[in-house]
Design a protein around this nucleic acid. Sequence first.
DNA 1: GTCTAAAATAAACGATCATTCATTTTTGTC
DNA 2: GACAAAAATGAATGATCGTTTATTTTAGAC
Lengths: 197, 197
Amino acid sequence: MIVYFRLMRMKDDEKKEALFEATVKLVNEIGFVSSSVSRIAKEAKVSPATIYVYFENKEDLIVSTYIDIKLKMSKAILENFDPTLPIRDILRNVWFIMFDYISNNLKYHKFVEQFSSSPYGTLVEKKVVEQYFDPLINVLQRGVEQKIIKKVNFDILSAFMWYPITILANPRLCENFELNEENIETAFTLAWNAIKL
Amino acid sequence: MIVYFRLMRMKDDEKKEALFEATVKLVNEIGFVSSSVSRIAKEAKVSPATIYVYFENKEDLIVSTYIDIKLKMSKAILENFDPTLPIRDILRNVWFIMFDYISNNLKYHKFVEQFSSSPYGTLVEKKVVEQYFDPLINVLQRGVEQKIIKKVNFDILSAFMWYPITILANPRLCENFELNEENIETAFTLAWNAIKL
DNA sequence: GTCTAAAATAAACGATCATTCATTTTTGTC
DNA sequence: GACAAAAATGAATGATCGTTTATTTTAGAC
């Protein structure tokens, strides 16, 4: 039997990316409430119907935007990750890289914050996204095993090693915290004092 | 000139409270997107039009709900505030009181988190709400002056003394952190290690 | 250029949105 | 019980919502 294959027309990656960017921009500016499908389409310069070629529905568009961002973030942060350094140096490096990434991509950070604390957040399995950042979690694990870091609940360690970054990088919450090297170094010192044994 | 006063009919405080509670419940369950005026009205068992007797519009209802919650929270937390204790004891007490309040009023905590990270957050002057908690900020100030607490940017101190509470009290973020006395004590120790000189 | 299948879209769907309006109900003094 | 004024409401407003459908446009193998 001879089967004829005809190449189907390909989806346009740039269009999908434009939809992600439009979603981020609008949700940051006017929130989930006002970010309607038609407005997102207009912002991305496509027809509202086109969105349904790329996504199942509005919810899928928004959740996909979130997951895409988390993937981008984890790649950027783990790009130059060197697990052979001393544990404190690894953590310190991550702090500087995360501040660098967030301050250059504040729109992503804002979107993630808004998404996570909204009911959309419950739609994403926390562990799925968390595993993108597995190497970071493993560092803390090693620190505990080597008796460098306090042996306490992991949620506590995270609350003092990772979450302060998301707080301090939020200019609405910390308008007096300038993201310069000295301030980041100071803040990291507090984080390290918190978790070190 | 004689002026005749007739008592006008009074607004019903219970109805306003019911609208606050309905707003909190629905926004937590289905988000700002789906929490329409008519659904909030139905939840509060009033007519949609009644909402406009008590509030200018939907935005006013939501912002007022937030401010009402923040006021309730600050009163609960500062109720038994004793500024004469040693600074570490004051902070430790506040930690326990805050965890107690949040775990008994998780709905308020959730609403505040979602509100703050949404564009509604920009509608509320941060300083207005912050001043409800002024005594707490003053404690840190005194700690710095008495050379008990590190002399660093106040946003940094807040990021390690207050924000970890909001993280740890969020069961979605910290599902492994049980809110018992031992765990709170441990977490506070890390916070104190971070900020103490 | 022809053909095909999928991308892309304009237009239309019923549903629901926030808000207003005309009317009724309730409150409290006289 | 009568009166006045504000609370309370049911119904209607035009606008916009998310999604679907029927149609047109486009990409790529032949």
